[in-house]
Structures are given as C-alpha cells and as structure tokens.
Deep mutational scan, measured.
Amino acid sequence: QTIHNGDQTYHYDNPEEAIKVAQKLAKIYNLTVTVKGNTVQVH
C-alpha cells in the first residue's frame, strides 16, 4: 500500500494501516483521501 501526500510517499505492508494514516493526515491538514487500488492519495 502506498500513500502519496503531496511530494511525500509512504509505503505500508498493511492496507488498513495505510488508510488510517492517510485519514489522520487528511484531518490534520484538512485534505481529501482518495483510494485507488493499492495507492492512497492525500491531497
């Protein structure tokens, strides 16, 4: 599972963990989380 947060990319073995982290980032920075296959984008 990969999270793209602007210019930063994070890799997680656990998809659920990746989505949790993405949602935390989204709340902190007031962003949107988009899940596309194995990629979670925060923008």
Rank of each mutant, 00 (worst) to 15 (best):
V40L: 05
K24D: 07
G37A: 04
Y29I: 14
K36S: 14
H43K: 08
V35R: 02
K24L: 14
N38V: 05
A26K: 13
H11F: 13
A22K: 01
G6C: 15
V40H: 01
T34P: 00
H4L: 09
V42H: 01
V42G: 01
T32D: 09
V33W: 00
E16R: 06
T32K: 06
T39Q: 06
K20G: 03
G6D: 09
G37E: 04
K36D: 11
Q1I: 13
N14T: 15
E17S: 06
G6Y: 13
D13Q: 10
T32W: 06
Y12S: 02
K24I: 15
I28L: 13
K27Q: 11
Q41A: 06
T9M: 13
A22P: 00
E16C: 06
H4I: 10
T2I: 11
D7M: 13
V35T: 03
N5A: 12
Q1K: 12
G37D: 07
Q23P: 01
L31I: 12
Y10G: 02
G37I: 03
N5K: 11
L31W: 09
N30M: 06
V33K: 00
V42S: 00
D13E: 09
Q8P: 07
Q41E: 09
Y12P: 02
T39M: 12
D13H: 06
T32H: 12
A18N: 00
V40M: 02
K36Y: 07
A26S: 12
P15K: 07
I28N: 08
N5G: 10
H43P: 02
Q23E: 13
N14A: 04
D7T: 13
K24G: 04
Q8G: 08
I28T: 05
I19L: 14
Y10F: 12
E16F: 07
I28W: 13
L25E: 01
P15D: 06
H4E: 09
H11Q: 09
T34G: 01
H11I: 14
E16S: 06
K20Q: 08
D13F: 05
N30K: 06
N14F: 04
I28E: 14
Y12E: 02
N30R: 03
V35W: 00
K20P: 00
N5V: 13
N5P: 11
H43I: 08
V33M: 02
K24H: 12
E17I: 14
P15H: 14
K24A: 12
L25M: 05
K24N: 07
G6L: 11
V42L: 05
G6P: 09
D13G: 06
D13P: 09
Q41F: 14
T39A: 06
E16P: 01
H4N: 08
L31V: 13
Y10R: 04
Q8F: 15
I3W: 05
I19V: 08
Y12K: 01
A26W: 03
N14P: 03
I28F: 12
E16N: 06
Q23R: 12
K24F: 13
H4P: 09
V42I: 11
G37M: 03
V21M: 14
N38P: 02
I3N: 11
V35I: 06
V21W: 11
D7K: 08
L25F: 03
V42C: 05
Y10I: 06
T32A: 08
V35G: 01
T9W: 15
Q41C: 15
G37C: 14
Y10H: 04
T2E: 12
Y12F: 15
A26Q: 11
P15V: 10
E17Y: 07
Q8A: 11
Q1H: 12
A26P: 00
V35Y: 01
V35N: 01
I28K: 10
V21L: 05
V40Y: 00
N5F: 14
V40I: 12
